[in-house]
Simulated scan of single mutants.
Amino acid sequence: MAPKYKNVKQHIKSKILDGSYRAHQKINSEYELVNQFNVSRHTIRQAIGELVSEGWLYREHGVGTFCADRSKLIQHHSRKSIAIVTTYLSDYIFPHIIRGAERILSDRGYNVILFSTNNDVGKERTALENILSQQVEGVIAEPTQSSFTNPNINYYLNLENLQIPYVMINAYYEELEPLSLIMDDEKGGYMAAEHLLDLGHKDIIGIFKSDDLQGTRRMKGFLKAHRQHGISLDPTNIITYATSEKFTKPAQETAKLLQQKTSRPSAIVCYNDELAIQILEVIRKQGLKVPEDISIVGYDDSHFAEATEIKFTSIKHPKSRMGEMAAEMVIDLIENKPGRKKETGSIVYEPELVVRQSTRKLESEEMNTQT
C-alpha cells in the first residue's frame, strides 16, 4: 500500500493535470486538505513539499500555496516528442498504425513516446497524466471505450488549454469534436452485410463490440443493409460484447445459435478479423465448414484474414497509411498553430470489400430453406 502522503500528492497532481487547478490558482489550505483526506498535517506538508520541489506548486508566505504555471516549462522545453496512445501496442493492426506514424515522425525529427490503454479508462487517465507530465509537443490518441461518455475529457481539455495539439484515430470523443482519422465504419458494416445478402443469405449473425464507436457504427450499417434489402432480422442473431468479454461471450453465444439444427444461420459478420479467427474455431467444433456450411466476413483486412487455410473476406483498413497521415496531421498542427483547424481537416476513409474464400453464393434450394 502506498504511503498516505503519496496518495494526497497524486490527487493534487491529477487535479493539476486535468485542469481542475489552473496556473496561479490557490489550492485548498492545509487545514482543508487534512479534513478532506482524514490524515495528519505532517502528511499534507510532506505531499505539498514534494510538489513544490518538483515544480508543480509554489508557496507565497502568509498567503497560501498555488498551482505553478507549467505552460512556460512546455514552451521552453527543448525536446520534440509526440505521444501515441492506442488501445493496444503489439496486437492485431496496431503495430502497422504505430510504425506508419513513427516513420513520419522520425523523419521530421520527433521522438515517439508510446502508451497503451488496453481499452481501460483508468489506464487512459494514467497515460494522459504521464503525457501532461512529460511536456510533449503533440498527441495521437485512439479513444478508449469510445461509445461511452469518457471520464477523462478534462485531460484533453487541459491539452487544449496548454496548446498541445492532438488528433484521434479509429474513433473520436464526440464531445470534443477533435480532428480525426477514421473509417466510415457504418458503410463498412453495411457492405459486409450487403455482400452476404447479395449472395442469397438471409439468416445472418452479426457480432459487434459494444464499448467502441467502431462496433456500434458497424452494427448500424449491418442493420441498415437488412432494412434496405427488405430482409427481416432475427433479434437473437445480434451478439454484442464488451472488451472484457471478447474471449468468452462471442464464442459462447455463436455456439448456441449454431446448435439450432433446424434454423441454423448460414452466415456471420464479425466485428473484426481477430474475432473471425475465434468464430472459425467455434464452427469447426460444431462439425461445420467455411464456406460450405457457414460464410464469414471479417473486418480490417489484417494479417488474420490470411492466417489460416481459409482466407477471409474482409473490409480493408488503411493501417500504416492512417498512422502516416495522423503523424503528418499532428506535425501540421504543431508547426502551424495559428488557425490550424482552418488548414487541417478530419479524414474519413472509404471502406473497401476484399473478397476471398470465406463466403459463397447460396443455391436456390438453400435460399428457400431460409424463407
Rank of each mutant, 00 (worst) to 15 (best):
M322E: 09
K15H: 07
Q259L: 10
I331F: 08
Y5C: 02
G339V: 01
K249C: 05
D18N: 14
S147M: 12
E186N: 09
Q163H: 12
R108D: 04
S180W: 00
E306V: 15
N118G: 12
Q259M: 10
Q46M: 15
S53N: 13
P351V: 03
F304T: 00
P235M: 02
N154W: 00
Y31C: 01
H42I: 13
N152V: 13
M329Y: 01
K246T: 10
Y110D: 03
I310Q: 02
C270T: 02
E174S: 06
C270G: 01
K9L: 15
K15A: 09
L57H: 03
E160M: 14
F312W: 01
Y92K: 02
H61K: 14
P351A: 07
K341V: 08
S14W: 00
T243G: 03
S90M: 12
F115P: 03
V34C: 11
W56A: 00
D273S: 11
I131G: 02
S90P: 00
A251Q: 15
V52T: 06
R79H: 10
L181A: 04
D185Y: 03
H77S: 09
A171R: 04
I27M: 11
S116G: 15
V330M: 03
E335M: 11
Y349L: 06
D69Y: 04
S295R: 00
E335Y: 08
T144W: 10
R227F: 02
H195S: 07
E186I: 05
E324Y: 05
T248V: 13
R340Q: 13
F208A: 11
H201C: 08
Y190P: 08
N237T: 01
I283P: 00
K13F: 08
D107M: 12
T344E: 04
F94L: 09
M168I: 06
Q214E: 13
K246I: 05
G138Q: 02
E175Q: 15
I140H: 06
A2Q: 09
I207M: 00
D198E: 12
D211T: 10
L157N: 14
Q135R: 13
S71E: 12
L17P: 04
S106P: 00
Y299T: 02
V348S: 11
Q286N: 13
K311N: 09
I239A: 08
D301T: 02
P250Q: 04
K311F: 06
I74S: 08
R59M: 10
F66C: 05
E366L: 02
S180L: 01
K80A: 08
W56F: 13
R41L: 11
K80Q: 15
L213D: 07
L132A: 06
T43Q: 06
F148L: 13
